[in-house]
Design a protein around this nucleic acid. Sequence first.
DNA 1: ACAGAAGCTTA
DNA 2: GTAAGCTTCTGTT
Length: 983
Amino acid sequence: MKKGDHLFLVDGSGYIFRAYHALPPLTRKSDGLPVGAVSGFCNMLWKLMLDARNTDVGIVPTHFAVIFDYSSKTFRNDLYPEYKANRSAPPEDLIPQFGLIRQATRAFNLPCVEIEGYEADDLIATYARLACEAGGDTTIISSDKDLMQLVGDTVAMYDPMKDRQIGIPEVIEKWGVPPEKMVDLQALTGDSVDNVPGVPGIGPKTAAQLLEQFGDLDTLLARAGEIKQDKRRESIIANADKARISRQLVTLMNDVPVTEGLEDFVLHAPDGPKLIGFLKTMEFTSLTRRVAEATSTEAGDVQAVAVTVERADHAHGPDVGAGLPPVARNAPGTEPDEAGGTAETSKQGDTPSLLAALRLERAATGKIDISAYHCIRDISALKVWVAEAREAGIAAFDVRATSADPMQAELIGMAIATAPGRAAYIPFAHMSGNGDLLGGGALENQIPLREALAVLKPLLEDRSVLKIAQNLKYDLVIMSRYGVDVAPFDDTMLISYVLDAGTPHGHGMDALAEKWLGHTPLQLKDVTGSGKSSVGFDQVDIDKATAHAAEDADVTLRLWLVLKPRLAAKGLVSVYERLERPLVPVLARMEQRGISVDRQILSRLSGELAQGAARLEEEIYQLIGERINIGSPKQLGDILFGRMGLPGGSKTKTGQWSTSAQLLEDLAAEGHELPRKIVDWRQLTKLKSTYTDALPGFIHPDTKRVHTSYALAATTTGRLSSSDPNLQNIPVRTAEGRKIRTAFITDKSHRLVSADYSQIELRVLAHVAEIPQLRQAFADGADIHAITASEMFNVPVEGMPSEVRRRAKAINFGIIYGISAFGLANQLSIPREEAGNYIKKYFERFPGIRDYIEETKAYAREHGFVETIFGRRIHYPDIRSSNPSLRAFNERASINARLQGTAADIIRRAMIRMEEALEKAGLSARMLLQVHDELIFETVEAEVEATIPVVRHVMENAAMPAVSMSVPLHVDARAANNWDEAH
DNA sequence: ACAGAAGCTTA
DNA sequence: GTAAGCTTCTGTT
């Protein structure tokens, strides 16, 4: 071996256990011999061999060996008799596979190395050292943490199942220590699988932290007395010997007296017929075919060979798979097996005709088969699918991209489905897994994005082909960024929302597939992994990506077939077509536009808030005489009401003292100094963390604007919701909070226009409940709360005390929220009887409202849903509950839903018409934001005066012509350079 | 790493 | 009393 050579060492023993547990069980068809692990092993080796001959991949091995454990007795047992003593016998169906895997290795023409008295890991350590001394590099094919101590400048690891390279940074990321400290870390943590004792109570996090602090294990043990935490210190002192023996156990021996040298590992090309003979014997049909193609061997000419199946060989049994804890087996069929060749697990007694019958039955009942999807790799195949979609007139599609944020996402691929079970995935930009480390690039056999879009764009824009998606807005924003305007379209999520708002199931793909198809689709996590080992979708293996993406397109199409007809059956087509579907592209454009946010203003505010909070913090510490965490309600409650003895009103269901703002305000009103400061501190820190600190992180790197995301199907009532960031809860109530709005700006030549509906929900109430006094008051443009007070308390509007108006206002809002004496009493801080009397008085003056409430409750009880005046349905499945408080809650919610939902419908109608109205008027104003009853536009300064009347007209007439309201809608609008002044 | 509670922001 | 989303803390996995 010489400089530049590269040695691959496969941890054969580790791989056997891993493949056995991670892959679905597979048996040889002819006789039921279990071969799942053998199949996984062969596929992995073949892939490594292919990569070895593909110079594009980057790493090309010149030397190659597969290393196994020999016996369960090693020198470690002399050191520590309990080592690996709790190891149980391997599973019954794994035992015959140990020998088969060694035979497979030889069939691949690869050296198969094992030495009595040593573990595979020790041999790997020894060969890695020899390679390094010879000037070569080593890649260890394993993900076992016991081997990570070997990682270094010339030694890396590679996890073939996750397609992940493990180098020094990955070790540090995963364990918090560099490879050379792994031994010390394992000495502390121990290993329950191998029965390495370690120090009780020390896990990986603590161990890494201690090693960071003390440098190494010896120093730590010598200076253990300095450890602050009592339990930890005592445990380490008491178990120092265990740590030392553990270190000996986990330290790999790198000078095993090996019998074969590196020169014996020189990699040879596989011997086609020899390998095929073995694979045929195993009945791995698809791998046989692939190997035959790649080695230009005629598989039919090769005879299957004899293999030896041992029950359990004398030594190869219990010791294999060192360090790999057993994991739960995947359900059969959740992962493509043996390259999609034989999806079924055959049992003894199965016959081909039985299998065929099973397949037919599955096809007939439309069972979803994720192994049946196609992967489109060349332009001519893509054209065939596009033609097929045109023929069908419908196509479900699903975009795969690098991010859940459509403004940041880069296209990776797209799935389309043209009929149930007929779906394909088109990969554009999948990368090789180790690309980021080696600068490797896109995988081969993908249609370049540009060429694929040239074929797909005409289909996606074809007026005669209906495109179907689940959560279409996401795809629309991405495709729009690539210059594709998808139309016409349907969105299964929105169809479900129109049919079933308020029912317990959500409207996401998984919930819908479960409910309507009785099927659980592959989860994104299943293909990308989760947590720190997750990878971007572009790193996902194309076969897995195909199963995942094509399945989603297939499921979407099937859902559409089930759900779309239900709209007509329930009379909800017009709700879907007039209130939901047309809003999707409108919101997509608003999100794409974003709004300009001034970083400097936020940064300045952040500084001011930090100063104010710091000052208050000091004052609070002075008052309580201790530096507690003020942000912890638990600590705060204990100090305030426990140690300091302030009168507290206990509560919260977890038995903690309540420290709510309301309660602290009350205490402040009684003259206590501390609660006031806490309330103020909370306000400042809230503004800082939620707004001034968080918002700049949402400024898009390219557009320099903030792009919120609107959810169309998140609320029960029909309102939108906003997230990432939520721009529907930007502060407005306090002067301090309003400063945040000054950061939402335009440039000098533009203006923000804010237009908001005045009292829209009360107007809806006056209309639907037919209340003459309220209708009149709104028609006159009068002060609605003052009129209410005047009616109730028989006082003239002129010179009315503000307290009287305040109470009437609270009652008006209470009605909208489905009033209760309890709630009103809380709001006004008055006794419950008094609140009850107000409500009684109110109903006497406005009997129509009592009727409206009773009517709504009766309707909801009878039908299980209520409707807005535009026919939107909101379900209340618990309205008939025998639990009185649950029932009452549903009653209040249903009363509110008719009003809130109708108001939501009205502004939706305005938004849907707005763009065309502005365009017709020749105005350049663009809608940016919606905040439930308010729309924010951006326009050139010169057009402000012309824009406002157009906006107002559209908004005020939004209910027409579907509904002619008996109460006028009123819109206030103004313009300024920032949102604070425009509002 | 995640989930729930508490608290706070909006309409 | 209705409808949301985000942050921090806390305890569990």
